[in-house]
Structure formats: C-alpha cells, structure tokens
Amino acid sequence: MSPTKNILISLSLSTLLVGFYSGCTSKNIHIIGEKRVEITKHKSIQEGNFLKIMAELENDDYDETEGFVYQIEWYDKNGFIKDTTPWKAITIHKNQKVQIVEMTNIPDIIDYKIIVSVPNK
C-alpha cells in the first residue's frame, strides 16, 4: 500500500470519527428556525444535587444584532422530561459570543437539551 493511499485512508477515517462525535454532542442541541445562531460549546457539571449547564452561543449573522429565545429541557435517568425552563429572550450583537448558565432546581436530572428558537427575518 502506497504512503499516499495510507494518508488518504487515515484522513477519511478521521473525518468519519469527527462526524460521529459531532453527531453525538448535537443530541443536546436543537435549533428551531433559521440557523443564524450557533452553539459553539456546551457542558454540564453536577452542583450538589443539581445539574448545571453552560453554553456558548454565537451570532452567525455578522451583520445584525440577533434577538432570539432559548429553553432548556431537563431529563431524568429514564429519559423522561422532568422540567423545562421558561423561554428566555437573549440578544447577541454581531461578532459577539454570549455565555448562558442554567441550573435545574429539581434533583435527579442527568441530561439536558438546549432549544434555541430563531425568529424569521
């Protein structure tokens, strides 16, 4: 097998792995409407009995201030939805990233989904 072929195979496998892992992380994100907002990163920690999450949102539309709403769904170990936050309005100016931090106020929550709703222009 030639070195060029090896490199090509390695690159293909890496692309597949990246695709696989990005697919895994996106289960916690759902964007409704136009994809003008991007969740660049998100993570969760356990704060006592409660799950706390952080997400970083970026305005992908570099021309305008973006006004949208988001909500967090909280799930228990069985995958049942136990609670949701109210929809919250947030504004991100162009070229700006905003960090949101939310914590559940009921115990035994192990998973979450960040839902972002972007209004149509």
Binding site: V69, Q71, T85, P86, W87, K88, A89
Partner: peptide
C-alpha cells in the same frame, strides 16, 4: 405557558417566570 410574552412593557408572565 412558558413562551416569551411581549404584548406590552408592563411586568408580565415572562418576567415572573424568569
């Protein structure tokens, strides 16, 4: 019931919830 409400600028359900 948890939607963002902006009917007027008065203190509303969204303000109460958030």
């Amino acid at each position: 019931a948890k939607a963002v409400e902006t009917v007027t600028a008065d203190f509303g359900s969204t303000d109460l919830q958030t």
